[in-house]
């Protein structure tokens, strides 16, 4: 219940923030440019790439997830509302969950807007719909994980810019893990690093049309662990 109220406020907050619209527009321009160039490039040559937009988003989320989440706790802290939230009869869990779900919901809407590309494809050709669905399920979970990480850093600092910067760095590293093999000589270490990376659970499975239970566990696990740590970080305000 409290989660729902916090969630409602966060969603409202996104819609009341010009910055969030700016981010959405930026994502749409980016995906749009790549969609059009792919369309032009593949005309009469190859079928349209069904996972194109999710693949583009998988990279852009490294930058946009921190921008979408940097506000969540940093602002509450700056405005002092965090103290009030924590004296309200709600648990930290509900606060963290509500905020996370709010961010995820906004992200989901953004994702749903990009369905328009799929409808365009559907109207001009017969794309591999199953493949696209798989890629979208993947990018949805992927987005959730990046948002959770962004929120964690927001909870750790009062400064939004610092929060955004730190989470970008961490997300970039988690993204780069896919290329661990290029850097790490030992293949087993590289494998572990890749197993921890975001791309390692998206680019070769979801984005290729294959849903693997382990990848779902990975993203759900990242979200669970990061949210848990976030709850503890928020709680630490009490004993500070």
């Amino acid at each position: 219940m409290a989660t729902w109220i916090v969630f409602r406020r966060e969603v409202g907050q996104y819609f009341a923030s010009p910055f969030a619209y700016l981010i959405t527009a930026a994502v749409l321009v980016l995906t749009g440019v790549l969609f059009n160039s792919d369309l032009q490039g593949s005309m009469t040559v190859k079928p349209a790439e069904p996972a194109l937009v999710p693949l583009v988003m998988s990279f852009t989320m490294i930058f946009f997830a921190p921008l979408l989440t940097m506000r969540l706790f940093a602002e509450e802290r700056r405005e002092g509302t965090l103290e009030l939230l924590m004296t309200a009869p709600v648990t930290e869990g509900s606060i963290v969950f509500g905020k996370f779900l709010g961010a995820w919901f906004y992200y989901t809407l953004l994702m749903v807007i990009t369905f328009i590309y799929q409808f365009i494809l559907l109207s001009i050709t017969q794309p591999d719909v199953g493949h696209a669905i798989s890629a979208y399920i993947g990018i949805w979970l992927y987005g959730g994980a990046t948002l959770a990480v962004g929120m964690l850093f927001s909870a750790m600092t009062e400064n939004q810019i610092v929060a955004a910067f730190l989470s970008m760095v961490v997300l970039f590293l988690m993204w780069m893990g896919d290329q661990a093999g290029q850097i790490v000589a030992n293949i087993d270490v590289a494998r572990v690093v890749r197993a921890l990376s975001l791309q390692g659970h998206f680019s070769t499975s979801f984005a290729s049309g294959l849903i693997r239970a382990e990848d779902i566990v990975y993203f759900a696990g990242i979200i669970t662990v990061v949210l848990y740590v976030t709850i503890r970080v928020v709680e630490s305000n009490r004993v500070r």
Binding site: V6, R9, Q13, A16, T81, A88, P89
Partner: peptide
């Protein structure tokens, strides 16, 4: 402690519901 981007009514309603 205030949420600058909420309306006065929205702000008070939020705390009412949360409590």
């Amino acid at each position: 402690p205030l949420y600058p981007d909420m309306t006065v009514r929205g702000y008070v309603t939020f705390w009412a519901k949360l409590r």
